[in-house]
């Protein structure tokens, strides 16, 4: 008798009062991204104040636009590629998820390599002038977020090889890493406009 009650109790626990409430993780992630966005807001505001108050901006530096534009295209398209992964898992297609997410990761790595190439061929250093400092810190901080997004994608890929881990109903990891990647993407569009295009108006 006691064993059965204990068992039923255990079963009750396993079903868990904890799983009664709905999943709030996506909501939490959105709040986190709001906070992340505010860090970039702070950095961009500082940049804009410098741009508005310093007439000699960008101190004679002319950024090459060819490579960064291709990079931008790659990063933006990677968001669409990644979305195919989510559509795949919604049809219970784990193979599709793995394919599209791997493709996204490759595009992300190409972006970072392009960024690295740009750094080594920029012809100016971090402390040369205020624009140079802004350029490295803003793109570098964004690059850090791309790296974090990549780690997120790799973790999702890793887990996707556990049988039954992601399914039509349960794929928070997929949604979260995708949302994060979109966020990084949107930040890049603003950053590209501010750092690469805005100085052209001078």
């Amino acid at each position: 008798m006691t064993t059965t009650t204990i068992e039923s109790q255990v079963a009750l626990e396993a079903k868990g009062r904890h799983h009664h409430h709905p999943d709030h993780r996506l909501f939490g992630l959105i709040l986190f991204l709001v906070a992340e966005g505010m860090i970039f807001f702070g950095l961009f505001s500082a940049y804009l104040i410098y741009f508005a108050t310093i007439p000699q901006w960008p101190f004679g530096i002319e950024l090459d636009l060819f490579l960064p534009s291709i990079n931008t295209l790659i990063l933006i398209s990677s968001s669409f590629v990644m979305h195919q992964g989510q559509r795949a898992i919604k049809k219970d297609d784990v193979r599709g998820l793995q394919f599209w997410f791997s493709l996204t990761a490759i595009m992300g790595i190409i972006f970072l390599l392009g960024q690295g190439y740009e750094y080594t061929h920029a012809g100016f250093g971090l402390t040369d002038n205020l624009f140079a400092s802004c350029f490295y810190v803003l793109t570098g901080f964004h690059g850090l977020h791309v790296t974090a997004g990549l780690l997120f994608i790799f973790a999702t890929l890793w887990r996707s090889f556990i049988p039954g881990h992601y399914s039509k109903e349960r794929h928070f990891g997929v949604e979260a890493s995708e949302l994060y990647w979109h966020f990084v993407d949107v930040v890049w569009i603003v950053l590209f406009t501010l750092v690469y295009l805005l100085p052209l108006t001078r």
Partner: peptide
């Protein structure tokens, strides 16, 4: 959520000034 991250951005830039010699 809206204000603390902005302090972080100020402190990141201050760190660069302090350690890396930016201005």
């Amino acid at each position: 959520l809206l204000s603390t991250p902005v302090l972080a951005s100020a402190l990141i830039l201050l760190s660069f000034d302090l350690i890396a010699g930016t201005s």
